[in-house]
Design a protein around this nucleic acid. Structure first.
Lengths: 342, 342
DNA sequence: TCCGGCTAGTTTACCGGTAAACTCGATGTT
DNA sequence: AACATCGAGTTTACCGGTAAACTAGCCGGA
């Protein structure tokens, strides 16, 4: 496009401001002139004010950026992230905002967050110290972190999370009350990377994902003895397969899965191994994603308000609500938990 | 932020271009001066070049817009759309592009597509004549339509789709070969809106969704007699429930579901009604979403390369590949089809 | 010695708009 | 008759950068 506002103005012998007004402030000129302007603009192939230029002077982009940990395609397969995103989309659509999805890669290379044309950032569960996150933080636009990382000094950035620790504790207590003593814990990841295997105390101490740390703390709190803890190296159901085999081999009767996706993997693996849930094995997930109520048997899990979190995050970002909140979690007892065998 | 490039330049007694170069073209100045500039910039609280301003002069936004039909939250629950989006994300990430999700509402009100800060549009299965789509089309940036709407004159816009008709025909033939004669077809929607119920010839003729029309045409081609056709008013499994009841009441032995999501709904409904699949009822879906291989029993369906479509769409958009392609579809025979009963 | 070619910057010209303040004639008001 | 008000535009001043062309000093080679 070569034809600009001024070209149109010239062609009609009016000031360029008037042409601008024809688009943005119809009230400021006669309907008649406005028609003339719009018509000749169409004739000349003028497509309306350039959004970039308008954005520059208005100092706004009309979109909000959502930063996901590492890979974008990953986030798009995670039901929890998706549900959050739906909430964001609903709230954003109400404010006529676009949604710009951005990856926050571990490498310093990329600069997506530095140069993204957005009015604010929603950071969804990104590893502490992630370069993309840091870049976003430096931008002079509002930023709300959801779930992770929690601000070290309480007010380094706006934060919205859930009561991970409390929810985890509920889950552990539930197993305990059912008489389970040999308990296994499944974590997706303790640190960025795909490390998998049993997690010894040293490894646990190295945990950088704060949500993992919180849930772990909650799990451990009521347990009389240390459970088996297994790091899966990823969050899909498939990642839970080797861990489940290992845990079952250790004679575990109850599994605390840190996410519902992992719990689904446990369920599937148990089924293929001929282990009956909940008779031989109890399983509790975390998140209460939609699929959780449709697993076979339906999954007992800790519910957190995922979609609401998305809506609230946008409200915090736009200043309609104050930050620093931790939303409540609670146990949803379905059919994957039963008294311990024997 | 009030501190600009020029402020920093002033403070150091260098030209503003030099400061700009410090950020964008390190080779154009001495490493020593560059350090000085970056340091005082940090001191002064300058956060680096404003992306909006840079975008204006460079004439690029660094993001590509993905336009979805009507509601964004809807698209985020549709497995097929999501899989497409994953492909897009993968390809976009490779080119360091952000992904801006945009709704294309039916009302003329909204202007998301008109003012979105993007370098190109991917239009995913949007209703023909949708105002948001039209707005995007008018923008002077590349645009690729995926699936819908197909360009009326062949070159009104770049297009990428799949062989919907051919795939549908394969599905119908398969049922036929298995001896089915009483066949039902489930459509999500024939036109925008949530109208549901049996579709008579008149209603069929009014179909505006071209993918629906194509698949329908493919279904009908080999069938000796007209099947029962039911419009579900939406694409979720739940939307298929009333339709399934109605079809079963009509004594149908085979169902052609226009999407896997609908097919899942058929499967669930059949299960709750005590109808055995595939013994009493055969079901064929369309798309081959990941869930399709995990339904009970695993779904026979028509496969289309959803994720590849996303990747290819980006390639077409960036000019790396030519448009106008229809990707192949083929039948994946799993366990929801069997010879007709009796 | 003179010239061409680097290096390291500077000058100048945009990019395509928006907003606030101002002008000017017509209207209405007391 | 004098004056505030309003509608309909215009003037002027940015928004915050980038890029191309130009300059000045310096070095090496013929």
């Amino acid at each position: 496009m070569a034809v600009t506002l001024r070209d149109v103005a010239h062609a009609l012998g009016v000031s360029h401001t008037t042409v601008s007004n024809a688009y943005n402030r119809p009230a400021k000129l006669s309907e008649q002139l406005r028609r003339r302007i719009l018509d000749t603009a169409a004739e000349m192939g003028y497509q309306g004010p350039d959004p970039l230029a308008a954005g520059l002077v208005r100092r706004q982009a009309g979109a909000l950026g959502v930063l996901f940990d590492e890979d974008l395609a990953h986030a798009l397969t995670d039901p929890a992230a998706l549900l959050f995103l739906q909430g964001v989309a609903r709230a954003g659509q109400a404010s006529a905002l676009g949604l710009t999805l951005l990856p926050a890669p571990r490498t310093t290379e990329d600069l997506a967050a530095r140069s993204a044309l957005v009015d604010g950032f929603l950071v969804y569960s990104v590893a502490a110290g992630n370069p993309g996150f840091l870049a976003a933080l430096r931008r002079d636009i509002p930023l709300v972190v959801v779930d992770e990382p929690a601000p070290p000094n309480g007010d380094d950035w706006m934060f919205l999370g859930v009561d991970d620790r409390g929810g985890a504790e509920l889950a552990a207590r539930h197993l305990l009350e059912l008489g389970h003593r040999r308990i296994g814990v499944l974590v997706d990841r303790l640190t960025p990377g795909d490390r998998q295997g049993p997690a010894d105390p040293e490894r646990l101490a190295a945990t950088t994902y704060q949500v993992a740390r919180e849930r772990l703390t909650g799990y451990l709190a009521p347990l009389p003895e240390h459970p088996w803890i297994w790091e899966c190296g990823g969050g899909t159901p498939e990642h839970a397969v080797p861990a489940t085999r290992a845990l079952l081999a250790s004679g575990v009767t109850g599994v605390l899965a840190m996410t519902d996706e992992l719990a689904r993997g446990v369920l599937r693996t148990a089924a293929t191994m001929g282990v009956a849930v909940p008779r031989d094995l109890s399983v509790i997930g975390f998140d209460d994603i939609p699929e959780a109520s449709r697993t076979d048997p339906p999954l007992t899990t800790v519910r957190q308000p995922l979609a609401d979190k998305g809506v609230l995050a946008v409200e915090v970002l736009t200043g309609a609500r104050s930050a620093g909140v931790r939303l409540p979690t609670h146990l949803v007892t379905r059919a994957t938990t039963a008294p311990a065998p024997r």
